[in-house]
Amino acid sequence: MIRRRGAALALLLALATVATRVEAQDTRRSGFMFMSPGTQAMQRDDMENPGMLAVLDGAELWAKPAGTSGRSCADCHGGGAEAMRGVAARYPAFDATRGEAIDLAGRILQCRAERQGDAPPPRESRTLLALTAFVAHRARGMPVAPDADPRMTPVVEAGRALWHKRLGQLDLSCAQCHDDNAGQKLASAPIPEAHPTGYPIYRLEWQTTGSLQRRIRGCLTGVRAEPFAYGADEYIALEAFLMERARGMEIETPGVRP
C-alpha cells in the first residue's frame, strides 16, 4: 500500500515535471509579439485601441431588441458584466441541431435568424463584427479552450489538412509560411505564427475591424488562390484547427495588427 502510494506520488511528480517542462517549452507567440512597440501600445490601451469602437457598438446592439421576437441578445443571455464570459474561447463549437461545426459569428447569425426572427446581417457587416467583437471581448484574458465534443475532431483534422495544402499559383501552404518560416521576413513584414487569439481584429491595413475569415482571404489572395466564400466550411475548419493549435493561449480581442 505504502509502496503503491509512493509509486503514485512518483508518477504525480513525474507528471508535474512533464507539465512544467511542456509549459517551459511553450514557445508559441501571439501576433502581438511580432508588432512594433507603437502598434502594441495601440492594442494594450483600450483608449487607443480602435477595435474598442466595434466592441462598444456590439455592447449597444447586444441590448437592442431585434426581429419579430422583439427580444435583444441580453434578454436571453443577460446583459451584465458576466454575460457570455469566456464563451468565445470555445468556438468554433459543434452544433448538435445542425450536425456541423459553427463559428462564433455563425452562432450569432443563427440566433438572429432563429431566435430573434430577424434577417441575419451579412458576414463581415459592421453589425455582425460588432456583436462578435463584443462577445469575444468577454473572453479577453482567458485561455483558448476548444470545444471538447469529439465530433469536432474531424473538423479540426479537416482544418489541419487544409493548413498543409498547397494552394494558388504560388503553390504555398499556410504551414510553409506560418509554421516553417514564422519570424522570418516576407519583404518587410515579419511572418507571424497565425494564432487566432485577437479576432475580430482592427487591422491598420484595413482601417477597420475584420474577421479571421477576412484575414485568411488576404493570404489566399496573396498566394493567388481563389478565396473561399465568407462563411464557408473551409474557414470554420481552419479556425477550429487554429484554435486547437492555440489551445491555452490568451484571448486578446480586440487585437490590433498591422
Binding site: L167, Q169, Q176, E226
Partner: peptide
Amino acid sequence: IMPAYHRTDGLARVAPA
C-alpha cells in the same frame, strides 16, 4: 517553398485571374 515559375499543372484553387 520556391514556387514553380513556369508550371500550371498540379496547382490547386488558382484564382481565375
